[in-house]
């Protein structure tokens, strides 16, 4: 209700949802196996990692920013947590430290952008390279395995809760919390305000720098959470993990109708955007589209969605 008029018309808001249904219908016609419970669970599990990052990216993009370093953040936090677990550190402690590291790496982005007044694209392009480089230094370019058999850690990526994969549960819980934050808290409102008009926000007594640092930290934290899920599922940390994840996350946000110029958008759209990408990945496989060609289709769908969105706003 609240952010209704400030964003888009109803039609624009449900457009991504209609797109998702359309894609599901087409894929189901071509291969009814898509709708089986086991496959749907599979899709959701695959979606969860991108969705978590995309949720954080929504906050960043709402402030008018962008973060290219999330993939590298994911790799570095995964490697550090895995490294600690492999060397016998308490797994829960190692995971918490990984999350903290993610938040710190995000905060560094935020500080460079807010205090150093560096354009977010450039700032995070640089930290992307640095974080990826640090990952390679730390892992010596090799995967880290032998992470022990801590139940908590193993459950994170592979477990089930009431028949639902834990990563999916994590995604849903995170979504609910973040939705609430964006919609009901002063912090959420300030995120929109800073993205909508930074100068007016500052002149209204809002500490815009702090808001920016918080959103990048939040994104770093969520990237670290995604990295723990990924590390648990693979039972190892890869130095090349998370490459191009930033682009999938940005694509999910944009597919969901959030404006790259900031101030307009919503996180429900991002969830749908992530689902569209996940369903495409899975569905194109199911209907036998050659894997190289899948990328072409994915790109074309994103382009089409954004072009349609353009039409409506114009």
């Amino acid at each position: 209700m609240q952010l209704k008029t400030n964003n888009q018309s109803i039609l624009q808001k449900i457009a991504p949802f209609i797109g998702l249904i359309l894609i599901i219908v087409i894929i189901t016609i071509l291969n009814p196996g898509f709708l089986s419970v086991s496959n749907l669970m599979n899709v959701l599990r695959q979606v969860s990692i991108n969705a978590l990052i995309a949720f954080g990216m929504t906050f960043v993009i709402l402030t008018g920013g962008i973060d290219l370093s999330v993939g590298a953040t994911l790799a570095l936090t995964g490697a550090v947590s895995a490294g600690m677990m492999a060397s016998g550190v308490d797994p829960i402690f190692a995971m918490l430290l990984g999350l903290l590291l993610g938040a710190v790496l995000g905060a560094i982005n935020g500080i460079i952008i807010a205090k150093g007044k560096v354009a977010p694209f450039i700032a995070t392009l640089a930290t992307m390279t640095i974080y990826r480089g640090l990952t390679l230094v730390y892992t010596d370019g090799r995967p880290i395995s032998g992470l022990g058999d801590s139940l908590t850690f193993q459950m994170l990526g592979k477990g089930y809760f009431l028949g639902i994969p834990i990563p999916v549960v994590t995604m849903i819980v995170s979504f609910a919390i973040l939705y609430f934050i964006l919609k009901k808290t002063t912090f959420g409102r300030r995120v929109y305000a800073v993205g909508g008009n930074e100068e007016a926000s500052i002149l209204s007594g809002i500490n815009a720098d702090r808001i920016k640092i918080y959103v990048y930290s939040l994104l770093g934290l969520l990237a670290a959470l995604a990295s723990l899920i990924l590390t648990s599922r693979l039972n190892s940390a890869q130095p090349t993990a998370g490459e191009m994840f930033e682009l999938d996350a940005i694509a999910a946000v944009v597919l969901g109708g959030t404006s790259l110029t900031g101030g307009r958008g919503w996180i429900v759209g991002t969830l749908i955007g992530a689902l569209i990408i996940g369903v495409l990945n899975n569905g194109l496989n199911l209907i036998g589209v050659p894997s190289f060609f899948q990328q072409v289709v994915k790109g074309a769908v994103i382009l089409l969605a954004v072009l349609l969105d353009r039409k409506k706003t114009a």
Partner: peptide, 20 residues
């Protein structure tokens, strides 16, 4: 427009901006 309002916000949201 550039310093006073977030033009995409509703009237209510604009009024709230200084009054959290």
């Amino acid at each position: 427009k550039s310093e006073g309002l977030v033009v995409d916000f509703t009237v209510e949201e604009n009024v709230s901006m200084t009054n959290f």
